[in-house]
């Protein structure tokens, strides 16, 4: 088995398209995971047990089942009940929903870390509950969460190859179809690894900087 530069270079344009889809899925999935996670965290904190209990159960359910199975449900089984999603949309929903259950936990811990006195002072100056969340609680709670949230985004990025199982033409899927067509796995799969490294290594470096900036331990 020998490395064939010509073949490697020939595969680059197709793999490049795959990289773009991978990035697209990660970015959209992250936005969904970050937004939905906050909603889940707030619903779980709700005083109303009819809201908090089912939310709690739902979060455990999602976290306790594999992402791959969830993707199959979204893409192959939902059409049976008349919900047709494109591969990328199903993939983004799958990633976003799955990781939202983890970001919800980060939000919950961050919110719980805000001292009770901040809530009481907000009440004493007569802020409404939405004003308290917007101006007092979240601006203090979110910065320390940023490293943990970024960590989940990097983890999500590395799980995007699972989307190939529901026919999303992301990097892994493109590499696999080239490999299957030419019966050569070395170059495409190596390049997949290289692409992931090229993105994840700077991301991890960036994450370290975030940690230094926001983590209380460095202050």
């Amino acid at each position: 088995m020998e490395w064939d530069w010509n073949f490697a270079i020939k595969t680059l344009p197709v793999l490049g398209e795959g990289v773009l889809v991978t990035i697209q899925a990660t970015v959209l999935g992250s936005v969904l995971a970050l937004a939905l996670g906050l909603v889940f965290a707030l619903m779980r904190r709700s005083q109303n047990k009819l809201v908090s209990r089912p939310t709690s159960f739902f979060l455990e359910f999602i976290r306790g089942t594999p992402l791959l199975v969830q993707l199959y449900f979204l893409f192959f089984i939902l059409p049976d009940v008349g919900i047709l999603l494109s591969p990328l949309v199903a993939g983004v929903i799958g990633l976003g929903l799955h990781y939202a259950t983890y970001t919800a936990e980060v939000y919950r811990a961050g919110i719980d870390n805000i001292p009770r006195g901040q809530w009481e002072a907000s009440k004493a100056v007569n802020l409404t509950a939405p004003q308290t969340w917007q101006h007092i609680i979240l601006p203090q709670a979110i910065p320390p969460m940023i490293p943990a949230l970024a960590n989940y985004i990097i983890a999500m990025f590395k799980e995007t190859p699972l989307l190939s199982a529901i026919t999303v033409l992301e990097l892994m899927n493109q590499a696999r179809s080239i490999s299957n067509f030419h019966y050569r796995y070395l170059e495409p799969m190596t390049l997949v690894g290289v692409f992931f490294l090229l993105i994840s290594i700077p991301s991890v470096y960036f994450l370290r900087r975030l940690e230094r900036k926001y983590s209380p331990h460095y202050k």
């Binding site: 001292p115 009481e120 002072a121």
Partner: peptide
């Protein structure tokens, strides 16, 4: 609450 204000033992300023 509009007619009442409070000062706390531990200040509770918005940091």
């Amino acid at each position: 609450r509009n007619s009442i204000g409070m000062v706390f033992q531990h200040f509770n300023l918005f940091p």
